[in-house]
Simulated scan of single mutants.
Amino acid sequence: MGTVERKTAGSSQNGSARPHPMGVQHLLERAQWDPDAARNILRDYVVEQFGERDAVLIVDETGFLKKGEHSAGVQRQYSGTAGRIENSQIGVFLCYAGNGGSAFIDRALYMPQSWIEDRPRCRAAGVPDNVGFATKPQLARRMLERALDAGVPCGRVTGDEVYGGDRPLRLWLESRAQPFVLAVKKNEPLWWKGTDLCAP
Rank of each mutant, 00 (worst) to 15 (best):
N130H: 14
E117R: 12
A140W: 01
C95T: 13
A108E: 11
Q113D: 12
N99S: 15
A124I: 02
A147I: 05
G132P: 00
R121P: 01
R156W: 14
G132V: 09
Q138C: 11
M143Q: 11
V127D: 12
R156E: 13
K136E: 07
D160K: 07
C154N: 02
A125S: 04
Y96V: 08
L94Q: 05
G100M: 15
D106S: 08
D129R: 04
R119T: 03
R142T: 12
L109E: 05
R119I: 01
A97N: 07
L94F: 04
L94E: 01
G101Y: 14
S102W: 06
G159C: 02
G101F: 14
V127M: 10
D129E: 15
C95S: 15
C122Y: 05
T135V: 09
R156V: 14
G100N: 15
W115F: 01
N99P: 05
P128W: 08
F104G: 10
D160P: 07
A140K: 00
I105P: 03
R107I: 09
M143R: 02
G132W: 04
G155V: 06
P112H: 12
L144E: 04
N130E: 13
G151Q: 02
A125F: 08
D129S: 12
G101S: 15
C95N: 10
K136I: 13
M143Y: 08
T135C: 08
D118P: 08
G151D: 03
K136N: 07
F133N: 01
G101W: 06
L148F: 10
R121I: 02
L109A: 04
R123T: 15
F133P: 13
E145K: 11
R142C: 04
D160T: 09
P120C: 01
G101M: 12
L148A: 06
M143W: 10
T158K: 06
A103D: 11
G98V: 03
P112C: 14
R156M: 13
M143D: 03
Q113V: 06
M111Y: 07
T158S: 15
L148D: 06
F104C: 10
M143H: 02
A134E: 11
G155P: 01
E117W: 02
A97E: 11
R142F: 01
Y96N: 10
L94P: 02
V127A: 08
G126I: 08
P112N: 14
F133S: 10
G98L: 03
G98N: 06
V131C: 11
L109Q: 04
R123V: 15
R156H: 13
L109G: 00
L144Q: 00
K136V: 05
A140R: 07
A108T: 03
C95D: 09
P120W: 03
C95K: 10
N130I: 03
S102L: 10
A125C: 09
G100V: 12
T158D: 09
R119Q: 07
V127Q: 04
L139Q: 10
M111V: 06
K136F: 08
Y96E: 11
P112R: 12
G132Q: 09
Y96R: 08
S102C: 14
L139D: 05
A134R: 14
